[in-house]
Amino acid sequence: MGVSTALAETWVGRWERQQERYAVDREERFAVIADLVERVTRGQRAPLVVDLGSGPGSLAVRLVARMPSARIVAVDIDPLLLELGRTHAPQAARYVEALIGGEDWIEALELDRPVDAAVSTTALHYPQPDRLREIYRELAGVLRPGGVLVNGDHLPPADPAIASLATAVGHCRARRQGAGDGEDWARWWAEARQVPEFADLLAAREARTAPGSGDGNGLSAQRHEELLREAGFRHVGVVWRCGASCVLVAVR
């Protein structure tokens, strides 16, 4: 089910452009996450980082560029995106296929020591609250004391009126930057389905993806903070925000 390097490079490039539609100031958000991980792991010879919902390795590539000695475990349920990552950026991470929050998903990561940082972008707004609390608890169990969970995602303010205004601000900024002019999520996947080399990977993807799994949980940043505290994190808060896009940090 492998794909060629050239094909992977083309489709990862298209993925990157497509994702700019959905994350306000995407590159800055990536940079903020890297800033935080670098600060927390300063002085460590080979920091261990878990990338949750890694897709084709977008965040892992940026982290390893900043921190070449880091060991990154990239976990995702999507076999096509993982294969694109393995082919396009094999040096960035060890790619693991597992459902975050699924049975034995932590064991699937094959961690050999406590984790220094768990990171995620646009993946933790899917699980429902009870499941998300358990995911946070499981992550707290593998992070070292002082380790961090850094989550960059669409996490609006709790007040609906303010959330609406924050979303509008984000859209205005995206328009000023010219982001979102290319293909969207639906078109990327529709055209990927026309690539013969992807057929087996897409069939595996369909078998693993439950109906409705793309629906978000709609939780505010404040609700995520509450769930993180309930899961055992000592210090929790938003350290960066642009519109509804934010970076939330939780310290073990």
Rank of each mutant, 00 (worst) to 15 (best):
S4K: 05
G212N: 05
R26D: 01
H235E: 13
G216Q: 14
L80P: 12
V119W: 04
F30K: 10
A210Y: 05
R86D: 01
R94L: 13
G243I: 07
L82C: 11
R133K: 00
I106G: 13
W240T: 07
G180P: 02
L139H: 08
T41H: 09
G216I: 14
S4L: 02
P90A: 01
R45T: 05
D184S: 05
E16R: 12
A92K: 14
V238N: 07
S4P: 08
D130W: 01
C172F: 05
T41Q: 11
Q194M: 02
A186M: 06
L132F: 08
W11D: 07
D181C: 01
V236A: 12
P127R: 03
D159T: 08
I72K: 03
V40E: 14
E134H: 15
A203R: 15
G178F: 01
V50R: 00
S220Q: 15
D184P: 08
A186R: 15
T41C: 15
R193L: 00
L63E: 01
A60C: 08
I162Y: 05
L109E: 10
A117Y: 09
R187L: 04
A8C: 12
D215M: 06
L80Q: 12
D200W: 04
L165Y: 00
A190Y: 08
L201I: 10
I100Q: 10
H235P: 01
L111Q: 06
A65R: 15
D78H: 14
S69Q: 15
S120P: 12
A6I: 08
R26Y: 06
L80V: 15
R62D: 04
E83C: 05
G2R: 14
G216H: 15
V32I: 14
L63W: 02
L124S: 05
A98V: 01
A199E: 13
R14Y: 06
E16G: 01
A250G: 11
L81Q: 13
T121K: 07
G170H: 00
E230T: 08
P47N: 06
R176I: 00
V148W: 06
R252Q: 03
L165W: 00
V50S: 00
C246Q: 10
G218F: 04
R144P: 09
M67L: 11
L109T: 13
A190C: 08
A123P: 09
S54Q: 03
G146R: 13
R94N: 10
A31S: 08
S164Y: 05
E110I: 08
V96R: 13
F233L: 11
L109I: 09
L82V: 13
A179E: 15
R17Y: 00
D112N: 07
R176Y: 00
Y95G: 04
L155M: 11
G57R: 04
L81K: 04
V169M: 13
G212R: 02
P68T: 03
L139A: 05
Y22C: 02
W240Q: 10
G243P: 12
E107Y: 08
G212D: 04
W188K: 08
I77Y: 07
R234E: 13
E225K: 14
T5D: 06
A65N: 12
E206V: 11
E83V: 05
W188F: 15
W189K: 12
V75P: 10
G13R: 10
E134S: 15
G13M: 01
G212I: 05
E103D: 13
M67V: 04
A168N: 04
L36Q: 14
D51T: 03
V40K: 09
H171I: 01
